[in-house]
């Protein structure tokens, strides 16, 4: 039980520096992107306001989360639910880089359950055996689709579904209730997003079956069936699930729905704030920092695109602190 006392204490000390809604308001009130970055650097973001590229700044912040978490826990596998996304992102990048014969080094993410260089090399050498067992089939399927059709989107769908399935499996394996629930929420909400988008674009049953991953709180077959019928039927089905709040958010706008999804996850992790000895606060910190980076991305892109403060504010998620 004591094994997380040290880690959680470090997390608590860092939580004091998470951005609050007031901090975000301060960033939002900046007139220029440079000014916003200077405010962010005062709040602990990298680069003293001098990092020109926003994506580079945010990538550095994401890497800071993981380099910190790496110091805290010996068994990194407990965070597989978070890291698997990076693995599958790297797989997509490697597949496309190989197909287009380009070097896309800046696209790879550093922290995953598999080293990004291993994924790069495996795809380049077309050696599936270098990849973890769970990833091999996905790689072979996605690569053959990409070679046969040249359809990058189809390749993404295959890899994204495999990613969701891997997250669900990692969640089920985890002994931590918070991580189990996070994985379930992540997969279910991703499925709903896919269903809503697919429904709007009038996608076929094949698309839904190829993209949707199984989870415990949604009946995927019913989701496919109702997504094919129409928006009303899809909303009616969602009303009868644990995600009925999605319908109200969707009736407002798609961005309100995305905000609702993120808030649902933050609400779930907030419950772990006061567990002094479990993995929960560490996992919560990861989600909180990711949420913070997402909020900063929304604000910075809002400023650089001259959007009104009001419309940016609408899109901002609830903060953890």
């Amino acid at each position: 039980m004591e094994q997380y006392a040290y880690a959680v204490s470090r997390i608590k000390a860092r939580e004091a520096f998470l951005l609050s809604m007031q901090d975000l308001e301060q960033v939002l009130s900046s007139d220029t992107i440079e000014e916003a970055k200077r405010v962010l650097s005062d709040k602990g973001f990298d680069g003293n306001g001098e990092v020109k590229d926003t994506e580079e700044l945010l990538k550095k912040e994401t890497e800071k989360i993981w380099s910190f978490i790496w110091e805290l826990v010996e068994d990194k596998s407990v965070f597989d639910v978070f890291l698997l996304r990076n693995d599958y992102h790297n797989l997509k990048a490697a597949l496309k880089a190989d197909y287009m014969n380009l070097d896309m080094d800046s696209l790879y993410l550093d922290y995953g359950t598999v080293d990004k260089d291993v994924i790069k090399k495996a795809v380049k050498d077309k050696d599936a055996l270098m990849l973890p067992e769970d990833m091999r089939e996905t790689y072979e399927k996605a690569q053959s689709v990409l070679l046969k059709t040249g359809d990058g989107q189809l390749c993404d769908i295959i890899v994204d579904k495999a990613c969701l399935e891997a997250i669900k499996t990692a969640g089920d394996k985890s002994e931590d209730e918070m991580i189990k629930k996070y994985a379930e929420l992540y997969v279910a909400l991703s499925d709903i997003k896919i269903a809503v988008r697919g429904n709007k674009l009038r996608k076929s049953a094949d698309f839904f079956n190829m993209a949707l991953a199984k989870c415990d709180t949604l009946d995927v077959d019913a989701l496919v069936k109702n997504s094919l019928k129409g928006a009303e039927e899809l909303y009616d089905y969602l009303k009868g699930t644990a995600y009925s709040g999605a319908v109200e958010a969707l009736s407002e706008s798609y961005s309100a729905f995305e905000k609702w999804c993120d808030n649902l996850i933050v609400d779930h992790i907030k419950k772990q704030k006061y567990n002094a000895f479990t993995l929960g606060p560490i996992a919560s910190y990861i989600v909180a920092r990711e949420n913070e980076i997402k909020a900063v991305r929304i604000i910075l892109s809002g400023i650089s695109n001259d959007l009104s403060s009001e419309s940016v504010r609408e899109r901002l998620r609830d903060m953890y602190v």
Binding site: E2, A5, S9
Partner: peptide, 15 residues
């Protein structure tokens, strides 16, 4: 004391 010591060390690492 050991348990609290681990937590205290965690806090001192940060501050």
């Amino acid at each position: 004391v050991g348990m609290a010591g681990q937590a205290a060390a965690g806090v001192c690492t940060e501050d």
